[in-house]
């Protein structure tokens, strides 16, 4: 998550920086395997176990308004938010599955699966601005919930695993986790903000140029499937009107 948020926030430094980062990720061999093994399966596992854990307790914050109890309760609330957010987020940008029939018949028609890795910034910007300010708010809340859940989760895991023992040690760890949380929260909000404010048309020009250079320099293999043009216009015979309509709206929206 840290890597993900830092990568995304690199968009604030420029479209090219971000696109380079995405190229780097997509240059990894067996990317789907890595994604499933180290990202999706753990997240699914955490989600299942987390919901089971959350359901095993019953918050009594109404009676015991104590700092620890608030954190306990918020850890569970943010867990649920993170669950909804992450699955929606993966659907929104990646469509869950890469099978064409799924993307064409289900995901894309309802405005999902919007991200094109070789047009990273522009497709992201389009996606973020496709429903006014709803997506940015949703992402900001989701990212903050995830950050709280992670930072507080590190703190409680430190108790559960016995890293910090005494109330004093736990208080110190708590400050460290708070600092980490604030930092990561800023990084996350930066990424969200940058994605929202990027000009897709200008970004796309940069990206296409970068793609061209990389293909010509034999740094990557051509893959139209990962490009907006290839996926949405050239590659598919029945171009859906959705994206083409979105782009102008998004441009005006971000201005």
């Amino acid at each position: 998550m840290c890597v993900h948020l830092v990568t995304n926030s690199s968009l604030a430094s420029g479209v090219d920086v971000f696109q380079n980062a995405v190229f780097a990720i997509h240059s990894l061999p067996f990317l789907p395997v890595i994604e499933w093994l180290f990202i999706f399966l753990p997240i699914i596992f955490h989600a299942v176990v987390g919901i089971w854990i959350a359901r095993s307790g019953h918050s009594n914050l109404n009676r015991y308004r104590l700092a620890g109890n608030r954190r306990y309760t918020w850890q569970r609330i943010t867990g649920y938010i993170a669950f909804v957010f992450i699955f929606t987020h993966v659907f929104h940008l990646h469509g869950w599955f890469h099978a064409d029939w799924w993307l064409k018949t289900v995901a894309e028609p309802i405005g999902m699966a919007q991200f094109d890795p070789y047009n990273a910034a522009s497709s992201l910007a389009n996606a973020m601005n496709s429903l006014g300010i709803l997506w940015p708010i949703f992402y900001a809340l989701g990212v903050l919930a995830c950050v709280f859940h992670l930072a507080n989760g590190i703190w409680t895991a430190g108790i559960t695993w016995g890293l910090w023992l005494t109330p004093n040690a736990q208080a110190r760890a708590s400050y460290v986790c708070l600092g980490f949380g604030i930092l990561l929260g800023l990084v996350g909000l930066t990424a969200t903000g940058a994605a929202t404010r990027t000009d897709p048309a200008a970004a796309k020009a940069t990206e296409d140029q970068m793609y061209k250079v990389r293909v010509e320099g034999l740094m990557i293999k051509p893959n139209e499937h990962k490009r907006t043009d290839g996926r949405r216009h050239g590659h598919s015979s029945e171009a859906s009107p959705g994206p083409t309509l979105i782009i102008p709206q998004a441009v005006t929206g971000s201005r």
Partner: peptide
């Protein structure tokens, strides 16, 4: 592991 670290107990 069933502890949720709400820390009400100590309070």
């Amino acid at each position: 592991q069933a502890c949720g670290n709400a820390q009400n107990c100590v309070a």
